[in-house]
Design a binder for these strands. Structure first.
Length: 301
RNA sequence: GCCGCGGUAGCUCAGUGGUAGAGCGCUUCUCUGAAAAAGAAGAGGUCGUCAGUUCAAUUCUGACCCGCGGCA
């Protein structure tokens, strides 16, 4: 399999931006104008029954534009980037086959990168027994072990991050080989549109949206998830809305504290989201729909 | 008015006769199958005010100011 010439590659649009920036609306607008369909790139909206808390678009907001990769996984099941990559690739093909324009839109940068930068994930599925065993070791021990077995990977890895160290060792122990390097030609011809929102304005939008979602029944949504058998631990792991509402429902924090902490955490999250794209030259940062429309026009010519 | 307790980082508080720490927040960053996860680095303080003791005071003493509780 040779490298595809760029003229042969499928065209894919990426819409990205921090939480509450208006990505979903923009993706729908572009879809309507340019005959596109949307593929969500969101690690929480992928789950069923996690609607308000994850900020999923409603049926009305979709305005009849087909959306992919929303509500496809049971929240009890584990889902990973690698699963996402497979599903997203399938969706892109499907949309292109219909002669429509695939638009990847979402706030999970790792998911977008996995698909668009063709990150190759070694075919080693998580071995929870092994992980539990490695979990008992200290980060220092794990790092030394990695240094011995794969000095190359040890050079770049976050030496104090247990989750990453364990994953790296898992790959090495299972494949008996070092962790493969990632570097490949991007698989699609792409246009990256980033929504640029002023920090202060974003904070206001985050807060307003948070209160609106509480009114819309976000707390009940989490309560129902628990009732359906999702553990507190799992809800904790989902983070943000699910984490803080779960703590509130358990009586660990009062309402005011839950709301304040959640607001703080969402703001932090939006800052973390920015670090993924800050230095990325491919992204065209836009302020409004008009600018986006122009970009897409040039892109699809 | 009296008695007691307290006043140290943006917040909650540790601590020491040789000019200070933690957690949280804040800023910045990382990202190879949990990614809203997980992790890293950094910036903040003339230790309430004034005076005394001392080679040396945030630490001891006194007065004062402020807050909280109790008594009257």
């Amino acid at each position: 399999m040779g490298i595809k010439r760029s003229e042969d590659k499928l065209k894919v649009i990426v819409v990205l931006g921090p939480t509450s920036s208006g990505k979903s609306d923009l993706a729908v607008e572009i879809s309507k104008k340019f005959n596109g369909e949307v593929i969500s790139a969101d690690s929480r909206q992928i789950y069923k029954k996690m609607d308000i808390g994850s900020g999923k678009v409603t049926k009305e907001e979709m305005q009849k534009v087909p959306h992919y990769l929303l509500d496809v996984v049971d929240p009890k099941k584990r889902f990973s980037v690698s699963d996402y990559k497979k599903l997203a690739e399938k969706a892109i093909k499907e949309i292109a086959k219909k002669g429509k324009l695939p638009i990847v839109c979402g706030g999970t940068a790792f998911y977008i990168k996995a698909v668009m930068d063709s990150v190759v994930f070694p075919k080693v599925s998580p071995d929870w027994t092994l992980r539990r065993r490695l979990e008992k070791k200290t980060t220092e021990e794990l790092y030394h072990e990695l240094e011995k077995k794969d000095p190359q990977r040890a050079k770049n890895i976050d030496s104090k991050n247990k989750v990453r160290l364990i994953r790296a060792l898992e790959i090495i122990l299972k494949t008996k080989k070092p962790v493969p390097k990632i570097k490949e030609e991007p698989p699609y011809k792409s246009l990256y549109i980033g929504i640029d929102v002023d920090q202060e304005e974003l904070k206001e939008r985050i807060e307003k949206r948070l209160d609106r979602r509480i009114e819309e029944g976000m707390i009940k949504e989490v309560y129902d998830l628990k009732k359906d058998g999702i553990s507190w631990e799992r809800l904790e792991e989902f983070g943000l809305e699910y984490r803080w509402i779960a703590r509130y429902l358990q009586g660990k924090v009062d309402y005011e504290e839950a709301r304040e902490s959640l607001f703080t955490d969402i703001k932090k999250f939006s800052k973390r989201q920015r670090t993924w794209w800050r230095e990325d030259e491919r992204i065209h940062w836009i302020k409004n729909y008009k600018e986006a429309e122009e970009l897409v026009n040039n892109f699809i010519k």
